[in-house]
Amino acid sequence: MSDAGLRERVRALIEDEARLLDDQDFEAWLALFTPDCRYWVPVSLDQTTPGDGVAHFNDDKQLMAARTHRLLNPRAFGAEPSPRTAHVVSGVRIDAVDDDGTVHASSSQIILEYRRRDRFEEDSRVFGGRVRHVLRATGSGLRIALKRVDLVNAEGSMNALAAPF
């Protein structure tokens, strides 16, 4: 495939992934990931591997499934009501392609989140930063093996985070 074709496919996948989160279509969202995937939001841009320290999110697929299952559970009052998000994806770039076809891509993303708690302007929050995807070629196309979200405020103190970035 041409470079332009690959870039188009990668961009579409990253945009689709963000759209599925905004739509809360978590089943379809999980299906984009490999069984051994990792969803990782480090506490420092210096972290090199998910095991090297604590993280805001450091999920295997089971935890991703439990987390998103909980978001749709009416008894999960920590997510009552469930947050609504809008992802803006920009600047998708292919940083490297391995010999086996694994693609290393990055994008800039801004996530607007709203959860109504009658706390006025605090009910809306903005997150954003550099998002890195490692995409593995599988029989059914590219699948996400790693999603790393480097928030601009990675070291910052967070209040409750219910929705994945």
Binding site: V41, V54, A55, H56, F57, N58, A66, R67, R70, A76, F77, G78, A79, E80, M158, N159, A160, L161, A162
Partner: peptide
């Protein structure tokens, strides 16, 4: 343990904070 017991994104902690 620390991530599960101390991240604002931990489902357990999010409930406590609420």
């Amino acid at each position: 343990y620390c991530t599960g017991a101390n991240s604002a994104a931990s489902p357990v902690i999010a409930d406590d904070l609420e």
